[in-house]
Design a protein around this nucleic acid. Structure first.
Lengths: 336, 336
DNA sequence: TTGTAGGCGTTATCAG
DNA sequence: CTGATAACGCCTACAA
């Protein structure tokens, strides 16, 4: 690998001039030497070393993306939006799959700090330890937290008002006459940190309903949880006519379980999802769910992050994106 | 950010000793100084700078992952497997979404080279330019190519025998009595580089069938392609009883189009997918498809990559993973 | 057992 | 307009 020194030798100039030219700063450089440098660089197939560069400047154009599960389409879309915006701005994304594991999250944050990452994006975990966030704050590494209301110190926060979203879904069910409603998803964490669960409870309470404990199930946001928890629910003695699922994957898993019992959605049991992943409108029945355009969210998130990285924005930023109920076919009106 | 120098000052030792200790090399270091160093490091919240380290050693523990589309569950699963294996080995993954764009692919490879990435994983693109791969080869950066038979110089290659996979799917359809079979997916590229298309053609040829040109459609591997191309197909005058879809997403999109026409899968039209993404068994009808466990593939890929990075394996590695037909509900037997 | 010093590849300052 | 040269933070012989 050719270095700047070799280029300077071949072009018969100093490394200083080479550095300027390869960084596109032609001020104070004669046309002739500029040409010579460009030629030499090409000749030697020179590529600047970003490690060296990052060491001396204090910017690396590296950003970290921490997601609980990249195989969840919601996060995959988010990652895609983030990546596109990042790439367009010359940034690189280090993919960190935390698997909802606080230890792994912390370890990754350590790594990102060690790489001198310019910024970090953190996505929802209901239970996590604060040390990672504290480290970012101490080192003044800009980060944006998405849907994590524990990160009060975040320079940029995006909140989706998940509680409202879950309320909308639950409301819809109740408006269609459902009263015995089950809930599946997320973790049982204190302080209402499981926002979707909290929204479910709040909506129920608004109609003076209190859900039966046997109808509340928790688990990771994937299809397996939906399948298994719904199977348990169906085996239980407690009757229910609808399920609020904490995300679309859970809902899809639940549908499978319901069908295997010989029942139909929405004829026998209604349900709602959350996220509106691309596939939920292709699915049969088309899922009634809460839309969150995570691709666009990703783009917005990176823009804001870049803003603070570049120091254009100094004040704390808090943005919310409103969840939206999308009515499809998985909820049936059962009258009063 | 504390540096090694500050730690050495606080601990009253040389930077050399600090360096050793923080790298876990306690040989030739007294217990007392070791303790002192560890204490000082903790006191100052010292974190080694990976840029500096990478500069002097020539390893960065950075690997690049180039995928066409991270929002395709197949690649998301692959990324997940790769990430887990990487993380367990102290490696970080830079996520590069190429969007099937050769320019973007090349740009990313440049970046990875500039970061001194230890290795790169390249996933299928039917059309691409060779300069990226050439650069990797020249600089002797280990890379593994997945399903890219143009990368003959790859130190490690994984081939899925996609041609066979597509043949299996097509065969299945023919065995069920289908003769007018359409195909959707991928790009129209020369040299049979679109392996799934090539497999489709080969299977047809084996029964002396030659597909009607009007029944062949191309496009990106997403649901939109499936939906739009299938809609066109249904509008066309040319009759067909089945569709071979180049991946599951396309198949899901096609199902939607078929239903919107008031037709049923598989009653009126049969179809096959490819990849067996998690969702295709939840879908209704459950997709008959070709299984490729991309999560496991991801893990294997990283293991091999690590092997060449560490220099444990010098010879060229070629591994194949066999596609497997999984029979489900989207194909109907229409007799002879 | 411990310390010194050179170098990894850049950038940036400051003379010439 | 151009060229030395000192950092950036770390590792690693080589000395002491």
């Amino acid at each position: 690998m050719a270095t700047i020194k070799e280029v300077s030798r071949l072009a018969n100039v100093s490394t200083a001039s080479v550095s300027k030219v390869i960084n596109g700063d032609y001020s104070g450089v004669s046309e002739a030497t500029k040409e010579r440098i460009l030629w030499a660089a090409k000749e030697l197939k020179y590529r600047p070393n970003r490690l060296a560069r990052g060491l001396v400047k204090s910017r690396t154009t590296i950003a970290g993306l921490l997601v609980p599960d990249i195989s969840n389409p919601y996060f995959a879309e988010l990652a895609k939006g983030l990546e596109e915006e990042a790439e367009q701005n010359g940034y690189n994304l280090i993919l960190c799959n935390t698997a909802d594991n606080p230890k792994k999250e912390r370890k990754y944050i350590h790594m990102l700090v060690e790489y001198n990452a310019d910024g970090v994006v953190l996505c929802g975990m209901e239970s996590y330890d604060k040390t990672g966030v504290e480290m970012l704050t101490e080192r003044e590494i800009p980060f944006v937290s998405i849907d994590r209301d524990a990160d009060v110190s975040a320079p940029v926060s995006f909140y989706s008002n998940s509680m409202l979203g879950a309320m909308l879904a639950t409301e819809r069910l109740m408006a269609c006459g459902h009263r015995e409603i089950a809930f599946i998803g997320g973790e049982k964490v204190p302080e209402g940190r499981n926002k979707r669960y909290a929204g479910f409870l709040a909506a129920m309470a608004s109609r003076n309903l209190s859900p039966d404990d046997n109808l509340i199930r928790f688990g990771p946001y994937n299809t397996q949880t939906g399948y298994e928890r719904a199977t348990e629910l169906l085996r239980g003695s407690k009757k229910f006519t609808a399920i609020v699922c904490a995300n679309d994957l859970i809902a899809l898993g639940a549908v499978k379980a319901i069908r295997e019992k010989g029942l139909d959605v929405p004829k026998d049991i209604s349900l709602t999802g959350y996220d509106d992943i691309l596939l939920s409108s292709l699915f049969e029945p088309k899922l009634t769910t809460i839309r969150q355009d995570s691709y666009t969210l990703g783009r917005e998130v990176f823009k804001e992050l870049l803003g603070v990285i570049l120091g254009e924005r100094k004040e704390k930023i808090v943005r919310t994106f409103e969840p939206e109920l999308v009515l499809r076919e998985s909820v049936r009106n059962i009258g009063q």
